[in-house]
Amino acid sequence: MADPKQQAFLQAYQACHDPFVRYCSALAYGKMDAEDLVQDVLLSAYKHFEKIEKKDQLLHYLIRSARNRSISNWRKQKYKAELLEQHTERLMAQDLSAEALLDIQFLYRTLDKLPEKQRDAVILFEISGFSMKEIAVIQDSNEGAVRTKVSRGRQRLKKLIENNSDSVGSILGGKGKMNIGY
């Protein structure tokens, strides 16, 4: 028979799963093991579950906890090849197409180039699917500020994606010319 605390925690977690795991995946991409991050955060939340007064706000707690744990890894670590491979394998195991996988990985890499606050706001809004109001609560900010961060983050991301596409295209073109030339 399951522990009542576990039952309650599982029940509260059901609504948090998708946004939480996507958020963790985005945070951990290439730099830390997403599984470790998810497990650490969940264990911490489970330990302090009695102290969380509003159980429906477990997601906010998980997001904050994940951000705090990963924050030191965001800028310091370089991409680790084994972590990237691990990520690919996990997504492939979920029957994801190779094209979608490339898009996701490209997006994660580009997101990593955004300033920290913009990046966080964009991930929460675009990937985890939080509303502006919810992001403001999570970030201890106001809705207008979050809106600005998301907007600027998107613009910057767009530019980065355009630039990356151009550079990738030119490099590929150059190579092609070179190949043709030889």
Binding site: V21, V38, L42, L91, Q94, A100
Partner: peptide, 17 residues
């Protein structure tokens, strides 16, 4: 791109969690 990311399955399934 964001749509495709949102539609994609999560890295860890609900059962795993």
């Amino acid at each position: 791109k964001f749509d495709s990311l949102r539609k994609a399955p999560t890295e860890f399934s609900r059962e795993q969690m």
